[in-house]
Amino acid sequence: MSAGPSRLALFWAEYSENKIAVLALVVVVVMILLALFAALISPQNPYDLANLSLRDSRRPPGFVGSGGYTHILGTDPQGRDLLSAIFYGLRISIQIGLAAGFVSLSIGTTLGILAAYLGGRVETLIMRLVDLQLSFPAILLALVIVALLGQGKAQLIGALVAAQYAYFARTAYGAAKAERGKDYIEAALATPLSARLVLWRHMLPNCTPPLIVVATVQIANSISLEATLSFLGLGLPVTEPSLGMLISNGFPYMMSGRYWISVYPGVALIILIVAINIVGDQVRDQFNPRLRK
């Protein structure tokens, strides 16, 4: 642990060599800040129905509404200020992405390491299940689970977790299995250290780098999957629209040229997802010794 700061500094030095990755990281941080302080910076609270007026609905960018201020990005079919709706939508998207990511990470890692550590029948059972699930498209699984559990934040997160924990399990299993075979783990197990200590001190740290990479990618995937489900009308309730729901709401109006209702929330979503993926790519390249020259 004492080597922590210097290793982090080295990591950052290498990371900052890639200007695009730095830009992507800045974008991610800015978007998280926007989401955190959505309530402070938004011209309007888009969830407060009392604020909304149907007279203001579907207005183009730059329109000055009944609230007396300019709707920079226009308004949606419910008369919400789009800029505010995007800030709040970002908050929901990021919340769901992070929550689903961390729950999948915990469940998947636990299962993966347990399978690698215990071996035998438990290993076979867990990994067969994981492989079966990995061969099944995540979107379909999420779709069915949302259909079965009904709509709502918890259900949505549950569906995303069910669709994604398997990636973490596979990654953790692979890394832990490789470590398990090494002599030092055998040696540690032979000492009177408790098994839990071995797992915690030795196997988990060695799984961390690949798991961080998978986590970044999966958080982006969660956000994307949530948006997709919302777009299909199977996501969150309409009263608190995420980015996907905003896009979905605007879709019917696109044919008549009212592009902004779908396009601006979409642009926000794409920037967020692409930025996270670029960060993830860079981190993966840095963790992958084979790509180093």
Binding site: S224, F231, Y259, I273, V274
Partner: peptide
Amino acid sequence: SVLGFSVPSFWVGLILILFFAV
């Protein structure tokens, strides 16, 4: 290809409609 990988499919569909159809 990185772009194709990370941009959600439904969004690409929307843009295709907006550009080629509308």
